[in-house]
Design a protein around this nucleic acid. Structure first.
Length: 470
DNA sequence: TTTTGAGTTGTTCGA
DNA sequence: GTCGAACAACTCAAA
């Protein structure tokens, strides 16, 4: 049977059940659709990555003697016309991940079945299907530890599927050119940095995984927290576009010789990805409203000026600023720095997690609609399994603990290059009144825009009022 | 049904 | 300088 393989967030040939199934049953046509109605984000870092990922996927197909057909417009209409014109019997795809994509799936299934074409969805995008709730449980999970324990009892996952060896093609339309989609980065410098740091695509994803497991998995549990060490896996953008599947990662990590503690810690990070997907599936409103309803009344500031300074990395707190500048330059940030920068926005500046989440969504190469909002709610304290209200990160202490020599901070905040280590996370204390700061080390670096202790106490007070109304 | 223990990642204060 | 306790109260999950 001839079929269309509709690629979505599974831009890979190996361990790709829709592709695998389609190719087993007969000739196939691989298609990617850019559906602007589903794509509300600006053409930022994520688009740059996606373009690279599509080019890489197309390259893989060319080596099989066919090409990825790029189309633009409303997905269901495009699929319907194409399927009818090419007289295919089925459309294969991975199921949608967001509420919008899932309702699209229903429309696609309906319109195709009207023409006698079947719509078949199958997924290896998660270790455990996001919607899954164990027998006997009344609702979705709320606490990560319990969720993950339950998942673990259903693992290991199946072995990954191989990439198809030979694909028989369905002759199809020419499709559009990626260069015409206007996804190319606006600023050349920015693109240059991105190209130097990242390589999108399936083969790069596997190389990255191999390098991580060989070099950084042993010691991961401890070293992941030190941003200067760059010991995190950096797999998240590859996962976000589905260039690699979680079970491919699972097996590679499980078979490694690294200490069990480190392997477990890393697999747990995959678990957080699963947990976030579970939460978004069962709480489709999670991207806009707090999972803890009491937070609906939280008195967030809608501060314009301070929010701008946070975005530009000009808050006067080196660890926060380094992270925010790294985000702009590279589309990413190490996990611990994300927490500190997010905590600072929400708890010290009192600005809503929704503003922060929107900025991250626009700027992260690894933006994932489930993980992004689940993590922001966690930091803000309004998630289901949120941090205790009193857990407020202190960017100075975090900096001194996890970047003691200021190596990371100096990399992204060049104004601090010559500041002595002991002041690198508190540069406002340098001059001590005697010297003229302007001819000192950090002349152009801003003074702190808030007082940490005061703003912290204000946040704690506001949280206290939420739990004891009146 | 009731009870009990636990819940990713922290900071501060006082001994 | 180091260490342990305090920081709210609540909700969830399992026994």
């Amino acid at each position: 049977m001839r079929s269309i393989v509709w690629f979505r967030h599974n831009l890979r040939l190996s361990d790709n059940p829709p592709l695998y199934q389609a190719v087993r049953e007969g000739p196939a046509l691989p298609v990617y659709i850019w559906d602007p109605s589903l794509d509300t984000l600006p053409d930022g870092a994520r688009k740059w990555w996606l373009a690279g990922s599509l080019r890489a996927l197309n390259g893989e197909f060319i080596s099989h003697g066919l090409a990825l057909v790029l189309l633009r417009g409303p997905s269901e209409e495009i699929l319907f016309r194409l399927a009818r014109d090419l007289k295919v019997g089925a459309v294969h795809a991975a199921p949608g991940r967001t509420p919008e994509e899932r309702s699209l799936d229903l429309r696609v299934a309906r319109i195709l079945s009207g023409a006698g074409i079947s719509f078949r969805t199958e997924s290896s995008d998660y270790l455990v299907p996001p919607e899954f709730v164990p027998e006997g449980r009344s609702g979705p999970w709320k606490i990560f530890a319990h969720f993950w324990r339950s998942c673990r009892s259903r693992l290991p996952p199946d072995l990954p599927l191989p990439a198809p060896e030979r694909i028989v093609k369905v002759p199809g339309p020419q499709g559009e050119r990626l260069g015409d989609w206007g996804w190319d980065p606006p600023a050349p410098d920015w693109a240059h940095t991105m190209r130097r740091l990242w390589r999108p695509g399936e083969s790069a994803a596997h190389e990255r995984l191999g390098a991580f497991v060989a070099e950084d998995l042993a010691g991961y549990g401890r070293r992941r927290d030190f941003p200067a060490e760059a010991a995190t896996s950096k797999l998240s953008p590859h996962l976000a576009q589905g260039e690699i599947s979680p079970r491919q990662i699972w097996w590679k990590v499980s078979e490694s010789e690294a200490p069990e503690k480190d392997r477990e810690k890393f697999l747990e990070e995959l678990g957080w990805r699963e947990f976030s997907a579970h939460l978004l599936w069962h709480h489709p409103e999670m991207r806009e409203s707090p999972l803890r309803r009491s937070f609906l009344d939280y008195p967030w500031k809608t501060g314009g000026g301070e929010f701008e300074l946070w975005k530009r990395g000009m808050t006067g707190f080196p660890l926060v600023d380094a992270g925010m500048r790294e985000l702009r330059q590279t589309g990413s940030m190490p996990n611990r720095v994300r927490m500190v920068a997010a905590s600072f926005l929400v708890k010290n500046l009192g600005i809503s997690w929704r503003s922060g989440a929107a900025w991250f969504a626009d700027n992260l190469v690894d933006y994932d609609p489930a993980s992004n909002f689940a993590s922001w709610q966690w930091v803000a304290g309004c998630g289901t399994d949120a941090a205790p209200f009193f857990r407020v990160f202190n960017p100075v202490l975090q900096g001194e603990r996890y970047d003691p020599r200021g190596e990371y901070v100096r990399r992204f905040v060049p104004e601090l290059a010559r500041v002595p280590d002991r002041f690198v996370h508190r540069p406002w204390m340098i001059s001590g009144g005697s010297e003229n700061k302007s001819e000192d080390f950090s002349s152009s670096y801003p003074d702190p825009i808030v007082e940490l202790a005061t703003s912290r106490n204000k946040a704690l007070q506001a949280f206290r009022r939420l739990s004891t109304p009146g």
